[in-house]
Every structure is written in structure tokens, then in C-alpha cells.
Design a protein around this nucleic acid. Structure first.
Lengths: 135, 135
DNA sequence: GTGTATGCAAATCATTTGCACGGTC
DNA sequence: GACCGTGCAAATGATTTGCATACAC
């Protein structure tokens, strides 16, 4: 069974510190897709000495270790989520900013097929649908 | 038939200045997807007084008017292209940075269908395949 | 002539980094 | 105890903005 984020950290030989545990806890509990500043705000309630610089440093470690995913939206802001669910893409509600996850095996197949026709192999991809609720 | 970018500008009541013409020319002739700094460099060979600030200001006007498209890649850098071809998405070669355009009606249909199932209407979307040449 | 566009330099904003200190292994 | 991780503040890099001047209409 899948290791907890904390276990995942230990296993990669990265040191488990107070601030990293705080950040992991906040990340794990977040169902929305917070940005670095928001994560900092939340994690501070657990460890008030945590600095924003460390949040960034930790997020990049966690991303490198495959524990979190960075979601770079079109407006330039980066959002984060724990990598504990299978691959999926996102729908962004233009009015509320709410982010919904979805997954389509069919689309993934088509993407691979298109890339292959052009002589490419997909390493990773991003797909975001910027939407508005239907009235 | 489709108006030239310059005509498009006049029609929207935006002033056609020396620097805007220079930028439009460079944009129209570019087959790659240059960023703001690169466009500045190129347009300067036509009008050497052109400032980078104006490049940004003009690009945002052109984007608002639907004349150019801003492509926000995952590394944060923005690239631009003239909106003179039908909608398409991009393949980014991770090794060379080269950008290839592609279009899939099937994928677009599936996207609309998925959004609809969740009660959404797609306003616009982005899809980028980060790839590597097959060996 | 009027009002918009421009250049310049200073201001933002998100993110990164240098450095000396503190804490994990 | 060795070495990695942290806080702080300063550095960065891309983009934006205030202001006085220049130019399109």
C-alpha cells in the first residue's frame, strides 16, 4: 500500500523536520489547491516560525521526490496538490476560481497517438479547461 | 476574407503607431513562438527606440483585441503567436524547446463533453504535451 | 487640440539565494 | 560532530506602473 507522505520523505533520505511535517500535514488535509503563500499561512498555525522561503524550498524538494504536484496556471500563479491520486487534469471555474479534477483515458490515448504521429513520446502534459457554470 | 493584423487594429479604434506596426510585423513574420524580450529584440531592428515596456503594453492590447495569443508555459515564461490560424494546441520539445502545433477535433469534443457532464461550459482551454523525440 | 501612447525609471510580485545559525541523523 | 535545513534579508526576473512628453486622429 501507498506510503504516507512522511514515510515517502524518510525513504528518500531527506531529513524530516518540524517545518516539513507541518507543511505535509497542511498539504495532505487541503482539498483545494492552495498556492505557496496560502500553505505558508496554514502551516504557520502549526509552526509559527516557518518562513515562506522554507515553504518554497520544501515544495520544490517534495515535487522532486514526487510527493506533490505543482500546478502552474495560466495567470502565472503556482498551486500545489499531494500526489496521492492517479493522474488527472483540471477544470478551473473562471468565476469562483474553484478547481475540479477530472480524468479521461480516451483523451490521454488520443494525446499519445498524436504525439506518436509527430515522432514524439509524451513525458508529461497539462490540460486545463477554463470554464463557466452553465446557466 | 480575414483582415490583416493592421486592419484589425484600426477597426477596434486603437491607434496605429510606429512601434505597434513594428511589433505586428515581427509577430506576423515569426514562425517560432517568441517571448516578450525576443520580440523586443527583433522589433528594435525596425524601430530602435521601442521600449520593452511598450512591447508588454502592446502585447496586452493585441491580446485583448484577439490579434495575438499568449501562451503561458509551465516554466512561467509567456510566449506569443499571431491569432491567424484556427485554434490549436502545442507540443513542446523538452530537449530543444521547439514548439509544434497540433489540432484534434476529437479531443475538443471529449473536453466539451466532460465539462458538460460537470455542468460547465468551456470558455477556453490549454493543453500542452511536453515531449521527447522517439529514439 | 485632445487624449492616447511612449520612454524611462522606479515599483511590484512571486520565487530564489547567500549566509550564519540551529537541529536531525 | 557532520552536514543538511532554516530564518532573514537581499537578489532576481518577469511584468507593471507613474509621470512628463510625444504623436495619432
Amino acid at each position: 500500500m501507498k506510503p504516507t507522505p512522511k514515510q515517502a520523505l524518510r525513504e528518500t533520505g531527506v531529513r524530516v523536520t518540524r517545518q516539513r511535517e507541518a507543511l505535509l500535514k497542511v498539504l495532505t488535509e487541503a482539498s483545494d489547491h492552495p498556492d505557496a503563500a496560502e500553505l505558508h499561512r496554514r502551516a504557520r498555525t502549526i509552526d509559527d516560525s516557518l518562513s515562506l522561503a522554507t515553504v518554497y524550498r520544501t515544495l520544490s524538494v517534495l515535487e522532486r521526490e514526487g510527493v506533490v504536484l505543482r500546478l502552474a496556471l495560466e495567470n502565472g500563479g503556482a498551486r500545489y496538490e499531494v500526489a496521492d491520486t492517479p493522474h488527472h487534469d483540471h477544470i478551473i471555474d473562471l468565476d469562483t476560481g474553484e478547481i475540479t479534477e477530472f480524468r479521461s483515458e480516451k483523451i490521454e490515448d488520443l494525446q499519445r497517438q498524436i504525439a506518436a504521429e509527430l515522432g514524439y513520446e509524451i513525458v508529461h502534459h497539462r490540460m486545463e479547461l477554463y470554464c463557466r457554470k452553465r446557466t
